[in-house]
Simulated assay, not measured.
Amino acid sequence: MPPVLVVPALAGLALLLLPMAGLAWRAPWGRLPGLLTADHVLTALRLSLTTATLATVLALIMGIPVAWMLARDNVRGRGVLRGLVTVPLVLPPVVGGIALLVAFGRRGVVGGWLEQTFGINVPFTTVAVIMAQTFVAMPFLIIAVEGALRGADSRYDQIAASLGASPWTTFRRVTLPSVAPSVVAGAILCWARALGEFGATITFAGSLPGTTRTLPLEAYAAIGAGDTDTALVLSVIMVAVCVTVLVALRDRWVRAL
């Protein structure tokens, strides 16, 4: 590394790592065993893991076709569409939650129709948590897969088509395996982002214990109740889970692919 870059690099590492080190330093580790076995913490952790996983599955089902559309299809206004798809990356999460309410709330464009026609009420349910997490996390997957599709050699697709393979077979047997590492990397980032989602969730789904109160919301509730120790321990748990997933899965699975 050039010497001129050493100081900025160290400053950047300090900015990124010191807050997490501070959490570990200030956390009341003596309360950790009791909190890990507390019913409300286990419920919030179980809900977070379940909803983040389901949100990632939805992101894979919907995000990969969107990435294909942006990378390979000649869709009119593709640049505008790409910008709109990635808006959740920079949109304040609370604004995202408000947008979800406008679309799927009881008086929303789609939500009102769902309630009147089928009696389905989406906001303030576990489904709303999954939708909020998918909304904010799916762009990570789309960007990763689109970039890989743009960089992949499309001649293999053409060869498969010339040999009689259908578009679906070509996609499943040729295209998707060629971008599998990017799909895995994008899914990991998507899952980690969904696990830590807060703003859109609390706005669209609320903070109902056992139903919509995920681990980040549980930590926020602890702060609101003046229980700083619990909030610190829950924060450490979330950091540990995210670091474990990002390091173990990304370094091993992606490299293996």
Rank of each mutant, 00 (worst) to 15 (best):
T228C: 00
L163Y: 06
V233P: 01
V102H: 14
P2F: 14
G79W: 05
G164Y: 11
T211R: 15
G224M: 08
V241I: 13
E197V: 10
P123C: 14
L16Y: 13
A52W: 08
D153E: 04
G151M: 04
L114P: 09
A24Y: 01
M62Q: 11
P93S: 05
L101Y: 08
P92E: 09
A27Y: 03
R26I: 08
S162C: 07
L70S: 06
W25V: 01
L35N: 11
P65F: 09
L114E: 08
L23I: 10
A128C: 13
P209Y: 07
R46C: 07
V254C: 00
A180K: 02
V90D: 10
A165W: 13
L246E: 06
P216V: 00
T244N: 07
F135D: 00
G147M: 01
V122A: 02
T134P: 10
F104C: 12
T203M: 13
A148D: 03
R250W: 02
S178F: 04
A132G: 12
R150P: 00
M20W: 11
I159R: 05
F198L: 06
F124D: 12
Y156S: 02
A11R: 13
A137W: 01
I142H: 00
P216T: 07
T230Y: 10
R26H: 14
P19D: 14
I64E: 12
F124I: 08
V245N: 05
E197W: 03
G210W: 15
A67W: 06
Y220C: 09
A256R: 12
P181S: 10
L149D: 04
G210F: 14
L89T: 09
G96K: 00
L58A: 15
V75A: 13
P92L: 09
P92G: 05
T86H: 03
I120N: 12
V80D: 01
W168C: 10
V66L: 01
R250K: 10
T211L: 15
V7G: 03
A225E: 15
G111V: 11
P216F: 04
V66Y: 00
P28W: 12
R76A: 13
G34A: 14
V127E: 15
G164I: 10
R72H: 14
A67K: 10
W168H: 07
R78Y: 04
T170W: 07
D157K: 07
G77A: 01
L60R: 06
A44M: 08
G210I: 13
P216E: 08
A256E: 02
T117S: 09
A27V: 09
V136C: 03
P123D: 08
P216Y: 02
A240G: 01
V184S: 00
V41Q: 03
V145L: 01
A55Y: 06
C242W: 00
A231L: 09
V174H: 01
G210N: 12
F124K: 11
A152I: 04
A11T: 15
R193S: 07
A148M: 00
P19H: 13
R106V: 11
P177D: 02
E218W: 12
L114Y: 04
R172I: 11
M20D: 12
L35D: 10
P2E: 11
I188Q: 10
V110P: 04
L163K: 05
P167T: 02
R213M: 12
V179A: 02
Y220W: 11
F204D: 15
